[in-house]
Amino acid sequence: MEKIAALSAEEIAEIEAEASHYEQKQAASIEALKVVQKHRGWVSDESIKAVAELLEMSPAELDGVATFYNLIFRRPVGRNVIMLCDSVSCWIMGCDNIAAQLKGGLGIDFGQTTEDGEYTLLPVACQGACDRAPVMLVNGELETHLNEEKVRKILGSTE
């Protein structure tokens, strides 16, 4: 039980609410990881152990799930997470240029976090907004019809 202490009461309540929707507790594993990530930005080893205990799974079983899905972060990320769509329609519409601009502007490559812990830049698959390509997610919000100017503005506004 002491491990569960690594979770806040709020997190536990949210996870248990999700778990009640299923025949079996462990079905809530992905949602539970997302709850933790919502509150903490990422999922640490301690969180894995705590959530596993809550859902009556082993840490290994939960980590097998956590590492399968690409929207679960098992390493710390910056305060702002930028996920640029690199799938086909956005690629046709020039997402490579946007990528270059972001990398240059932030001084980091995909998969990296700026030194000040402000930004993490990640590539992401098709966002289902191909008619508004190129697009990216900034802290979960969809930004469409990207061009150089728009990207500059967005970066400016998150600071």
Binding site: H21, Y22, Q24, Q26, A27, A28, S29, I30, E31, L33, K34, L55, G64, V65, F68, Y69, N70, L71, I72, V124, A125
Partner: peptide
């Protein structure tokens, strides 16, 4: 119930989706 996924195209394959819904690897 609304279940939100955590990424992975394969989750759209109907049987992988079921595994994912059960909280497993898809």
């Amino acid at each position: 119930y609304v279940h939100t996924s955590a990424g992975r195209y394969i989750c759209g394959e109907e049987t992988a989706l079921l595994n994912s819904l059960e909280g497993k690897r898809a």
